[in-house]
Amino acid sequence: MKRRTFLTTALVGTGALALGVNLYSPSHVKISEALDEQHRLLFSLLIPVFLDGALPEIESQRIVAQNQTIEAIVATMGLLPDDSRAELEELLELLESRVGLLLLTGSMTPLLMRRPAELVEMLERWRASYLDMMITAYQGLRELVIASYYSSPEHWTRLNYNKPTFLN
C-alpha cells in the first residue's frame, strides 16, 4: 500500500509541475528506482540539502557525487545493527507517507513537492525541537548522509586531503 501511495505522490508532483509550480525535482533519479526499498528518491531529495556547498558545482559531477552518496548510504544501512536499521527504516517510511509527514513535519505535502528552502526549514525545526525524537530524526539522517558522503575518497577534493600513498 505504501508503494501505491508513493506512486500517487509522484504523479501529483508531475501534475504540479505541469501547472507551472517551480518544484525541485531531481531529474537524474528515475522514479522506478524510487519505488524500491532503499528510499533512493527520498535520499536524492535530502542529499542536496545536507551537502549544499559540499557537492561539486559542475552539474555532471554533482550528479555522479549524489549517486555515489546514495550507493554509500545503502551500503551504510546494510551495515547497521538490526535495531538501528529498523529505527531508521521506520523514520524513512514515515517520511514517505502522508500521515508520517503530518506527524513529523506538520504538513502532508510530500517532500518531493517541497523546495530546498522548505526542506531546510523542516530540518531546522527538528534540530531545534524540544522533542528528543525529532532531534534524533534530524541527527540520524544527518549522520547517515554526511558520513556516507565523506566515506568516499572521490569526495575529499575540497578537503585537500588524500590518504597516504606509501603502500601503493
Binding site: 545536507f50 551537502l51 556547498g53 544527518r142 548522509v145 554526511i146 575540497r158 578537503l159 586531503y161
Partner: peptide, 24 residues
C-alpha cells in the same frame, strides 16, 4: 579523519561544508 570529523561536528549545508573545507 573525514568521517570522524564530518559526523562529530554540527550542522549541515554551507556551514558544514565551510568547516570541512578547512579540514587541514
Amino acid at each position: 579523519h573525514p568521517i570522524l570529523i564530518a559526523s562529530k561536528t554540527l550542522g549541515y549545508g554551507q556551514s558544514h561544508a565551510e568547516l570541512m573545507a578547512k579540514f587541514n
